[in-house]
């Protein structure tokens, strides 16, 4: 039997898609559905018995769980910080290094370097920076004669989360910088020249032309930073295991599931995290579509 060209194309399309889609189902969709199901059960690793349906019990419990409230609040704080620190820092660096700057490529490489390093290594590095006795930050304070300001960066409530977010932003800022640099490179030069001829100074050009035209890059940078902020587990875990009020939803999910062995409850936490991620991603894609429409 000879297939028509269209049917043959469809068959090949299907044949090529079946493998990646199967893999995607096994490693993403399947675990997602399993987690959603587990979140509706009272399953614990310690019971060594099949999961039993428990309805919304885990979600009800979340509403009264102080640790969850702290984790949720911290995750939201982290998301807001992700809007400001890596995005703002990346934009400033990109503006500084764009154009004819001496040694720009060296600086670009240096600022981008942290993003190529494993988060565990980043965490270990900052562990040393924040060590109270001989860490870099306290040593600097000691050097300038303010030894009495011995700061316990990772164990002081109200400070620990900020210290961790700062370390994370330090890594993320390179990625933002590169995206903004790409955006700056693609700016239409004639528009800036026209503004210059019309007498616009640097600040005016920046405010009226550069930043508005960097909007597509900003959307990418912000979306990446916010989505990365939701995955904030490894850094927190290595630095202080979410102690001193620095837990995030990802950390609580791990602790509930793999430390306290409450897989059902841990799954409920992860579903909340998933819901937040979905809202952001939907917002991101709608925004991108609007921008595409605008620029078309």
């Amino acid at each position: 039997m000879k297939l028509s060209l269209k049917a043959s194309q469809r068959l090949w399309t299907f044949a090529f898609l079946v493998v990646p889609l199967s893999v995607y189902f096994v490693v993403v969709i399947g675990p997602l559905l399993a987690t959603a199901w587990l979140s509706l059960t009272s399953y614990t690793f310690s019971a060594f018995a099949p999961p039993e349906f428990a309805g919304l019990v885990n979600y009800e419990r979340l509403t009264g769980d102080d640790y969850f409230h702290t984790s949720l609040k911290n995750t939201l704080i982290w998301m807001v910080a992700a809007l400001i620190l890596p995005t703002g820092g990346g934009l400033i660096l990109a503006l500084l290094l764009h154009g004819r700057v001496r040694g720009a490529n060296v600086f670009k490489s240096l600022f981008y370097l942290p993003i190529t390093i494993s988060m565990i290594v980043i965490a270990q590095t900052w562990q040393w920076m924040y060590q109270p006795d001989w860490g870099l930050l306290n040593t600097l304070l000691k050097t300038i004669g303010v030894e009495k300001w011995k700061v316990f960066w990772l164990s002081t409530r109200g400070l620990a989360l900020g210290a961790i977010i700062f370390a994370w932003s330090w890594q993320q800022v390179g990625l933002s910088m590169v995206i903004f640099l790409a955006g700056l490179t693609s700016l239409p030069g004639e528009m800036l020249e026209a503004a210059q001829i019309d007498g616009a100074n640097y600040r005016q050009s920046l405010r009226r032309i550069v930043i508005p035209l960097l909007l597509p890059s900003s959307v990418v940078v912000i979306a990446l930073a916010v989505i990365n902020s939701l995955r904030s587990f490894d850094l927190v875990w290595v630095l202080n295991e979410g102690g001193s009020g620095s837990s995030t939803l990802a950390v609580q999910m791990y602790r509930e599931t793999f430390k306290s062995l409450r897989a059902g409850y841990g799954s409920a936490v992860s579903m909340v995290l998933f819901a937040i991620a979905v809202i952001i991603i939907v917002f991101y894609f709608r925004r991108v579509r609007r921008l595409e429409h605008l620029y078309d």
């Binding site: 924040y130 109270p132 006795d133 011995k150 316990f152 960066w153 990772l154 164990s155 002081t156 202080n240």
Partner: peptide, 15 residues
């Protein structure tokens, strides 16, 4: 020691 939760057991050993 102040800030015990800022140290791990290796730090305590060093102290």
């Amino acid at each position: 020691v102040d800030g015990a939760n800022a140290y791990d057991w290796v730090d305590a050993a060093d102290q």
